[in-house]
Design a protein around this nucleic acid. Structure first.
Lengths: 116, 116
DNA sequence: CCCACAGTTCAACTATCGGTGAAACATGGA
DNA sequence: TCCATGTTTCACCGATAGTTGAACTGTGGG
């Protein structure tokens, strides 16, 4: 990934509302959530939320599809994975303090089960 | 980790200069680099860099020690690990698209060797 | 003690960001 | 066709971030 794109994704996540929105969408999974429901859930004005979703979308962290009158937003899981891999890429020049806890967390089921 | 702290760390990394500085320090390892050398390496004015380092420092991503006339900065690897774990925590509600590539990257030696 | 060097702090400027109200657009039902 | 619903777009405002020049602190050498 290019440094520029990493900065755009990091700054897309570097705001309380957007981080909450993204985490909500991540929890929701591939099915996603309509914009209006996100707005009600997080108590964000619809127009404000729309701007935030636009930003997340142009950073490639979120996508949307229309379903009737609703726009369903969902997380772009691969982009998120790219970002995390990028942040870890140059982490371990002979010392494992960075990655070891992450692998441990993943292996202990804090995240997904690596055995499947 | 609290959401507030995650936002502070993400926004500390969400800027081209600071992301480069942090990655440089990560590559440098625990020994760290003097502020002046960082400034020369990345062509950043010393006072500008100082402000950036302050921000990274107050986010807990960087620490410094004095050595003679130099201030040696180094990455806080545990904080970085905390942040990455936080971003992965709620990632996998029944689907593994997020974490699988990360574990794969770590296992394939893109990061550190998980076997040791 | 004085000076040079390494960094930091301060004040100021500009640019960008996040939020709001009003209006517009898109879709589906009566 | 008209209207209600769901969402976006636009213009604007206040607040915050990043950079710069100037002055300051702290350390070591002669």
């Amino acid at each position: 990934m290019e440094s520029d794109l990493a900065v755009r994704r990091l700054s897309a996540l570097a705001q309380a509302n957007r981080l909450e929105v993204f985490r909500l969408l991540v929890k929701a999974g591939p099915d996603g959530i309509p914009a209006g429901e996100i707005a009600r859930t997080l108590s964000i004005a619809p127009n404000t939320l729309s701007a935030q979703l636009n930003l997340l979308s142009s950073a490639g962290l979120v996508k949307n599809r229309r379903e009737g009158r609703s726009l369903i937003y969902s997380a772009e899981f691969e982009s998120m994975a790219d970002l995390l891999v990028y942040l870890m890429e140059d982490c371990c020049q002979g010392h494992q303090a960075v990655c070891a806890p992450i692998i441990a967390a993943a292996s202990q089921g804090d995240c997904c089960d690596p055995s499947s």
